[in-house]
Design a protein around this nucleic acid. Structure first.
Lengths: 340, 340
DNA sequence: ATGAAAGCGCTAACAA
DNA sequence: TTGTTAGCGCTTTCAT
């Protein structure tokens, strides 16, 4: 019983007007007399007519589709961002075509081609590093692109991040103020700008206070790898263990805390202070109660969408780099100056 | 410097062949001589030509886009499913246009219209209940639809779920075998078939053993609501508290456990046994170590995609309902028969 | 195997 | 304000 869709021609015939009149009635900025509008609307309703977005896209050159490249959704930060991005864009009349990319270089390349094939109006690369080669391709294709939660040296591509450097610095200052001496760092994936900037800020903060970095592990932003790195970091004599640890994101911080408590019987924060980065929902759950640097997701999303749409809608818009500062949220996983 | 895309006409001119020859070279099932193929491929590469998916979709009537409606991504189960769905479809040459729907009826309605406007080849409704009215609309529009992790009475729409009823039953039997007497249930959103079926199986399981349901709360699948419902359930005298609790999904189970431990100082499982449903990644994290019913996500995704694509590719394919059984995964959050 | 020609459903000049 | 006309870039008959 699958009846075919009605076209604007069917509606025109039924309403006794021209096909272009129908088009005008369904085109926001167009002009049509009250009479025509009524006749057309009526006929359209009777036939269940709705304009075909694809045909519209072809002729207008605007698909109202945004390609979203995203790498992996394990980290709670991304589903949240995806949800908000999609909502924000939906409200503005755009839709999101999702492309999942493995964290390998070649893959992002293929995916980018597929995206461009769909004539997307813009691209958001969330947590994916774009090589300068790729960003060139986007520019050549004339497709505005914004990187979300990643940045790069090429200033020709817009990027929105939190102020990762400042965040890392805040953590260093906080831990030092808390009276800690053996302070360590657990790194994420080294290819990520977030990782690099957080670590740079953290290290500079320590250095300014004359405190050396006591230990360093690498968890690659993965839960299991963070567990292993933790085991390694806490494997020797007890006096080789750090007493405070900045973990490059919350997702890994949960792994660290679980490992420390379940396997070594340590108390957090009495034996070890832990600080994360992101402030994902679970950071506020009582089991973790994690002190962490908040990413202001709403503001970051808003900025991303604003920039992208302005680049789409006015040709001339210059690319820009936005860094949004976020506060250190104090919870129970790290000793404070007073607490000590 | 944004050079426009090359079209098949440009390639044809450069290769010295007709435009349709170019089309054939880029159309899987078409025929062209070795020579033509070579000439065309060469010219295409030089011009950076790739076929325009939208134009292709218009004329062929196949967009190779699947509309994915999804409600909310807080629950870890959905990002995981989304990731796998998207990957599976990408491998099969389809792409996912995501539509976020609030859990309100009207909204799903609007969203469905927008989806159909994009001439999607199929729809996956993940964790969204489709009214029979809506499913009718899909049928009329001739767009195959599969519900993922939800089912409904209308057998004309395909649905893939885990065997929620059987799962609920397993939990009842397990808790009874564990020697518990005061057994309670924490419900999810009552509009969800998953909630209903899990509860029905659970209740039938209790009843068959002659054990009454000791208490019931409602958490609506939300973390905070589950916390409140927990406080309420554990508010009176200690002998009015349940000693075992089946929570309708893992996401709420975490809230329950956190509340019980942090606010009431209870020990899990010694004071209360907790069982969840889904087996999301965090269920295996040491902080929760949650006994739970596993949803076999991979199998569910596979089935969903298989069914959808077969309905798309062979007109005749009859809708079907698939229920995939999942095991009860024993961890440390509930006493076992031996443990007691 | 190949080219010419007819659209897919729509928007956007252009006249009237 | 309205209708007429010309495409958007492609696939797909239909001849050759």
């Amino acid at each position: 019983m699958s009846r075919e869709n009605a076209t604007s021609i069917d509606v025109a015939r039924r309403a006794g007007v021209s096909q272009s009149a129908v088009s005008r009635v369904f085109t926001p900025g167009a002009s049509a007399s009250r009479q025509t509008v009524e006749k057309v609307r009526k006929a359209a309703n009777e036939l269940g007519y709705r304009p075909n977005s694809l045909a519209r896209a072809m002729v207008s050159g605007k698909s109202r589709i945004i390609g979203l490249v995203v790498a992996y959704l394990q980290n709670q930060f991304y589903p949240e961002a995806l949800e908000k991005l999609s909502n924000e864009l939906q409200e503005r009349g755009y839709h999101v075509l999702v492309f999942l990319a493995a964290r390998t270089v070649g893959n992002v390349d293929d995916v980018l081609d597929e995206i461009l094939d769909y004539q997307v109006d813009g691209i958001i690369a969330a947590s994916v590093a774009l090589s300068s080669d790729l960003s060139n391709r986007c520019r050549i294709a004339g497709v505005p692109t914004v990187m979300f939660n990643r940045s790069q040296d090429d200033l020709a591509i817009s990027a929105v991040t939190s102020d990762n450097y400042a965040g890392g610095r805040k953590v260093a200052e906080f831990l030092i103020a808390g009276g800690h001496e053996r302070i360590a760092f657990m790194a994420g994936w080294e290819g990520a700008s977030t990782q690099r900037d957080r670590e740079a800020g953290f290290r500079d903060g320590l250095q300014d206070a004359g405190v050396p970095l006591f230990a360093r592990g690498v968890g690659n932003f993965e839960f299991d790898q963070a567990r292993n790195a933790t085991r390694q970091m806490f494997s020797g004599d007890r006096d080789t263990w750090p007493e405070a640890l900045f973990v490059a994101n919350d997702h890994m911080a949960f792994a660290v805390m679980d490992t420390l408590r379940a396997e070594l019987g340590l108390n957090i924060p009495d034996d070890v202070s832990i600080v994360g980065y992101d402030d994902v929902p679970a950071a506020a759950w009582p089991s973790y109660d994690l002190t962490t640097v908040r990413q202001r997701t709403n503001q970051m999303i808003r900025a991303t969408v604003d920039i992208l749409l302005s680049e789409i809608e006015n040709e001339g818009a210059a690319p820009c780099q936005v860094r949004i500062d976020g506060p250190l949220v104090l919870r129970g996983s790290a000793l404070t100056a007073k607490g000590k």
